[in-house]
């Protein structure tokens, strides 16, 4: 039996076999992909949950150094929040463009989303630089280590989302709004809205409660 199976495996594949399932089979792979990506996002929630838990536990560990009240500027955070919130909305508009099969609408809104995401990231990096310069770097105290780990991980996710947008732009320009590209876009859309949800928790639990 074993030798038979092995020889069957060694047979060259039949003509036209690509290893991929053709789209002629009427099965909804888009739905499967999106559910799978949703499960990934849920696992990412656990990553952020552990960072939030760490932050909460270390939230009074200033080691006699600077506290959030000394450094946090809520006006600055409000602008950051506005940028990310608007980018979530503009990504929704881009998705509507994709549904209408309008490349112009899709790419314009995606461009706006990318710019807003870039603006957010630039502000966050400036904030990190400013805090470190004032004497609250990642190694200053337990509190600031937890702060940079949590907010930095969110920032890295935003960065990854922006890289993904660039990759998707290449796909879209090459193939147009195909079923596959639409699925990719829907996954990125979920990812981007998820980052907004995490930011809601960050500005509420870290910034607002930090200056209370």
């Amino acid at each position: 039996m074993t030798s038979m199976n092995t020889s069957a495996l060694l047979q060259p594949p039949p003509a036209g076999y690509t290893g991929y399932v053709d789209e002629e089979h009427h099965h909804d792979y888009t739905g499967d992909t999106l559910l799978g990506f949703w499960i990934y996002i849920m696992s990412d929630c656990i990553l952020f949950a552990s960072l939030f838990a760490t932050y909460a536990v270390l939230s009074t560990g200033f080691a006699g150094g600077l506290t959030p009240k000394d450094l946090f500027d809520l006006n600055f955070v409000a602008v950051e929040t506005a940028l990310l919130l608007l980018s979530s909305f503009t990504f929704g508009m881009a998705m509507l463009g994709a549904q209408q099969k309008s490349m112009t609408v899709l790419l314009s809104w995606l461009g706006v989303t990318f710019a807003l995401g870039g603006g957010f990231l630039a502000m966050e990096l400036y904030e990190f630089y400013h805090f470190s310069h004032e004497g609250a770097g990642p190694t200053s105290s337990a509190y600031w280590s937890a702060f940079y780990a949590l907010v930095g991980t969110h920032g890295l996710h935003v960065f990854a989302g922006m890289l993904w947008m660039i990759v998707l732009l290449v796909h879209l320009l090459k193939d147009g709004i195909t079923v596959t590209n639409h699925t990719r876009l829907a996954c990125l859309s979920m990812f981007w809205h998820f980052l907004d949800v995490i930011w809601i928790c960050v500005f509420s639990l870290v910034y607002l409660m930090g200056v209370m």
Partner: peptide, 9 residues
């Protein structure tokens, strides 16, 4: 498609 609801403006 299953799992992918669409929105409106």
């Amino acid at each position: 498609h299953g799992g992918a609801a669409h929105g409106s403006v």
